[in-house]
Computed example of a mutant assay.
Amino acid sequence: MKTVAPQKVEECCPTFNNEKWDEKTFNWDNKPFIKASVPTFFHIPFPPMIGKQITRMNKIAEDSNQLDPNKEDILVLFADPHPFKSEIYLSVMAKVPEAKNTSLTGTFMSKVFDGDYNALPKFMKEMDVYLGSKNKKAKRYFVHYAYCPKCVQEKGHNYMVLFAEIDN
């Protein structure tokens, strides 16, 4: 009888570490990202388009060796500047050829939430209360989803990190 070695299952999304991101302050000075956008309908994204765009961005960054080797440190931030467009920011280590390079500079406070995607407005209100307790106010928000929809199902959590850009 022939034995078959177990196949190594590649991890899709790295295991999320709450402590690394919950109630932290980050001072970013030209933190490099590549940026893309996807259409939305009143802030509701079209999931296949998001997945394709993130896959494309990841490949470009990976091909140029600009993705952080520590997968847990890679951020995919979303911002909705208006109801029909969502911006996606992928953190990189340096400029990426053939990508729209940008950077973020400022002070950002973060807080971790766990819940349904449609609870984001509620989480933003909770974040505003948290910021108020620190005498701070958000200028704008970015959200990082720790897991893709497939991993949310597998891991049983839908962690989101809200990053609030604040005045110093």
Rank of each mutant, 00 (worst) to 15 (best):
Q7E: 15
T3D: 10
E98N: 15
K20G: 03
A79P: 01
Q66L: 06
A79S: 15
K85Q: 15
A79E: 14
A119I: 04
E154A: 09
D29G: 06
F41I: 06
V129W: 09
H43E: 07
M57H: 10
A138Q: 07
V38T: 05
K134M: 15
K122W: 08
P69K: 11
M127K: 04
K71E: 04
K20Q: 08
I44N: 11
T40I: 00
N135W: 08
K71T: 07
K136F: 01
N18C: 12
W21E: 00
N18S: 09
M49N: 13
S64I: 00
E19C: 05
Q7M: 13
M124D: 11
D116H: 15
H43Y: 14
Y89G: 03
T105F: 06
I44H: 11
F42R: 12
H144W: 07
N18E: 12
H144Y: 14
A99E: 07
K139V: 10
M109K: 14
Y145W: 09
A5Q: 15
N30Q: 13
F123K: 05
N158L: 04
N27C: 13
L75T: 02
L131M: 05
I50Q: 01
M160H: 04
M57P: 10
K111S: 09
S110K: 08
P32H: 07
F142N: 01
Q53V: 12
P39T: 08
D114E: 08
K24M: 02
Y147T: 01
N65K: 15
D68N: 15
H144N: 09
M93V: 11
E87T: 08
N158G: 07
I50D: 01
A61G: 06
R56F: 13
T105L: 07
K100M: 11
N118I: 14
F16I: 03
H157C: 05
